[in-house]
Design a protein around this nucleic acid. Structure first.
Lengths: 199, 199
DNA sequence: CGGGTTGGATGACTTTTGTCATCGGTGGTG
DNA sequence: CACCACCGATGACAAAAGTCATCCAACCCG
């Protein structure tokens, strides 16, 4: 029987996923609602597979994957997330995850995917793989940082203060980002980048 | 046996919820991934309970609830959604729903809540009820409309064009909204309003 | 009827944004 | 080495955004 730990911050979804996997014949050996708890659980139970969301309090799914690769290398990590976070695919694969699925995919594919991963294969949602081929994040690290803060409503001067930059420099980075993304202002640029998982 | 139809746009969550409810002894007579399909299903099967998300393609959960109240008045509607959409509570209750739950609540409460609703009671997540008491949306309809568009990155002139308002008027509404929300610019104001479900 | 509220608009003014050209420093890489 | 990409900064200018006071018309409502 394949032993699984699940990490997902929405408790109801967490419970529902557990129910689904049990119906499908998996052994759910642990459920966690945040990244830290998940890491502790994985260290304690060393499951075959860790199924995790990306957005979570504490450690994110990505950070969790990196930690697990060190602490419990035999545990394979599979990420399930919403399409909105699909831009994390590359970073997820870099972090050594074995699978990347969408919550939009039918529930039946989840069990399939987990069995395949357990058999040693890598699984990436086909829609996602297609979307990932094509546009690549054109932003530099600085542009990303600045854009993220701008998207939160901070004004250039405040962003500069947080990042130890001049206001003018901040405006320059924003201007470049807006230009690269084909947006017409910082708000649109931030939304675009966010929707592609680049922020 | 309590007969339930589930509507939820993330297929995997949809399937998982179905698995959970079946384990809990409910009869899941239908699953829909958008509002229109859900309405058809409810009309066809007339379940005891419709469990639905708010954000969906086609009809939203709220519109769905109103339609169901007309087409299948014996079906009770229960909304499950994320905390981020908690501001819909009042509107949901106005629409005659029998329950409003959070995906953040433990999975075990879902079955409980559905049984209670089936017994004729109303169920509202306690965290939500507490949060709803207290802050009330201070925005006027116009301010809401304008703020929503501003949050999408449109500039004042474009917003005015869409709403048949002068640019100056748009700026006035935004200024008021920013002031009411204690924000320091339109971006922050939009984020604040959105996070409270007021947009 | 008179008064209060609300939606919409102007005008004037200040502050923030966005754009550009330009400069200097650092760290690869063919 | 020369070239190029990125980082950081300045200065200047045009375009938005935000603030305030004020005004008008349409509704309520007592």
């Amino acid at each position: 029987m394949i032993r699984v730990v699940i990490a997902e911050d929405q408790q109801m979804v967490l419970g529902a996923l557990a129910a689904l996997l049990e119906l499908e014949g998996f052994e759910v050996v642990g459920q966690a609602a945040d990244g830290d708890a998940a890491l502790r659980l994985v260290k304690g139970t060393v499951p075959d597979i860790l199924l995790t969301d990306i957005e979570m309090p504490g450690l994110t799914g990505l950070e969790l994957a990196q930690q697990v690769a060190v602490s419990a290398p035999s545990t394979k990590v599979v990420i399930v997330t919403t399409f909105a976070r699909s831009g994390y695919l590359k970073r997820a694969l870099d972090a050594g995850t074995a699978g990347y699925l969408l919550k939009d995919a039918p529930a039946s594919t989840l069990a399939d995917a987990l069995r395949r991963v357990h058999a040693g294969r890598r699984v990436v949602d086909p829609e996602l793989a297609a979307a990932a081929w094509g546009e690549v994040d054109p932003l530099t690290d600085r542009e990303r940082q600045v854009l993220r803060l701008a998207g939160d409503g901070l004004k250039s001067a405040e962003i500069g203060r947080q990042l130890h930059l001049t206001e003018g420099t901040v405006r320059n980075y924003l201007s470049e980002a807006i230009n690269k993304l084909g947006a017409s202002n910082r708000i649109e640029a931030a939304r675009l980048a966010r929707s592609r998982g680049w922020l």
